[in-house]
Amino acid sequence: MENKTITVEGVEINKYSVSVPSNQVGYSLAAKSGSEYTVDYGESFTFVFSLLEGYTKSLPRILVNGVEVTLDVNNECIVADIDENITIIVENVVLNTYTITWNIEGQTSTTVVNHGDTPIYEGTPSKPSTDTHAYVFDHWTPEIVAAVGNATYTAVFEERAIKIGATDPDESAGEVEAELSVPGGVIIDAVLKVKIVETTDGDISVPDNKEIFKLYNATLLNSENEDISASITGEVTLKFAMPSGLEEREGIQIVIDGESVARSVMIEGQFIVFETESLGDFALVVDTQSNTNLSLIVTLSVAGFVLLIFAGFGVFFLVRKKDKEKDDTKKEQRSH
């Protein structure tokens, strides 16, 4: 009888696969160095997890075959004693959102934005005007950048002058005292010049039965003496000193260079006030003298006619009174 040898072949230890998410958005999950995605029965698999920039506020859930696991202080997790295929799933990883606070003169509002987005304020910040100054939004401080955290931005306004005065005019140069009111405001150091001129380069259309009393030029200058009149937009009010002798004239109006229709004026004390959309040359016009004289003649004629009528009635009543007195005297004599 001979010895027998039994040989068993094809018996291998079970091997198991470890599957991790393929589309990893906002995080990284990978095998730790030394771990393989295919493991033998009873062995372990160690993975490392981290949140990426912009997702750090997430509270992720990591599931190993449906069971939630926790990470150690090194953001690692060991799956031990493996006896089946492993599937790892990650949930609740979302993009960070931040609160952006907009500060406008102490009044605040907020906007929520995603990480990496540039905050946008809806509308245009505004600040109420005063009697003398207007405020125009200029910029935000600090400079607005893509969001990487909560931030506060404060509105900065440019102060502009609403009332620009020419209170110290050079009379030798024909300048007169004046004031310009601009609802929207102009640069704070603007200077107004209103002066009497002999001629203009423009086209002053004098209405019928009117004549020019004075020609003027109104100009707005900056601190470098540059003309910034064109910066004015919308309707403004110009007020300037009344010239001598004007109070004796009728039909006072303003004609602006390039316009065909005269504008009405208001008299405020010793000042003339009118509204306009532009500065430059303009004429102060009045009724012609002949027209004024004709009005005076008509007025006197009417007055004379009225006096004549009253005088006629007076004579009539006086004659009637005399006749009545004579009749009364005769009646009295007959009675005696």
Rank of each mutant, 00 (worst) to 15 (best):
G123V: 14
G304T: 10
H115Y: 13
H139D: 15
T5I: 15
P21W: 00
V148I: 14
V136I: 13
G116T: 04
I78C: 04
G54S: 09
S229C: 07
V18K: 03
F305K: 03
V90C: 01
K321F: 12
M266R: 11
F271H: 12
V236G: 06
V197D: 07
A31D: 01
G106F: 06
E248V: 06
Y55I: 05
V67F: 15
K331Y: 10
G202E: 08
K15V: 14
Y16H: 08
D131W: 01
R249A: 04
S172N: 09
G34N: 07
E105R: 03
T141D: 15
E268G: 04
N74K: 09
N74W: 03
N291G: 15
V298K: 13
S28D: 13
N96T: 06
I120P: 02
Y37P: 00
E171P: 01
I86N: 02
V148F: 05
V156K: 11
V90Y: 02
K214P: 02
E68G: 03
T233F: 07
V319R: 15
V90R: 01
V315C: 12
N103G: 09
I272T: 10
T292H: 06
G116P: 10
S231G: 08
G258V: 03
I267V: 12
T130R: 05
Y98P: 08
R160E: 08
Y216K: 14
T237C: 11
N293H: 10
P243A: 04
E43T: 12
V69F: 01
I256F: 11
T329Y: 09
G34S: 09
V255I: 15
T237F: 03
G234A: 08
V285S: 00
V194F: 00
K57A: 13
V315Y: 15
G202D: 10
S17D: 14
D72I: 02
K193N: 09
V64D: 06
G10Q: 13
R61W: 14
N96C: 07
V73W: 03
P125G: 05
Y37K: 12
M242P: 00
K57H: 07
G165M: 12
P60G: 06
T99Y: 02
D327P: 00
A311M: 10
E247S: 12
S172D: 13
V191Y: 05
L192K: 01
V176E: 01
